[in-house]
Amino acid sequence: MKDNERELAALLITALNLEDKRVDDVDPAAPLFGEPGQGWGLDSIDALEIALAVQQKYGVELRAEDEATRRAFASLAALADYIAHQRAVQAV
């Protein structure tokens, strides 16, 4: 797992109080949302919490109406890539 993925996994675990999940056990490619029991099994209220946590930590605004954000929410790896890309764009 890449460093930025580990950091983001830790942020999600804290922000969503996923106390039985450990950063080392996270599969970066697993889906974040969907039917309970698959991947992280998060719901739309969690999405709101993730958006707040990401905005506060990285200064990156997530927009659900944006197709790029929809893709970013596919997995931890996709979200980490999206945040890195947005921060690079903002830094220019």
Binding site: S44, A47, L48, L52, A64
Partner: peptide, 25 residues
């Protein structure tokens, strides 16, 4: 719109008077 920046963008697209229909969350 669900995320705060989306709510702002959607409201910005509308002329006044604007009404937000939402939930406590």
């Amino acid at each position: 719109p669900v995320f705060p920046p989306d709510v702002r963008t959607a409201l910005d697209e509308l002329p006044a008077p604007r009404i937000l229909v939402t939930t406590p969350v």
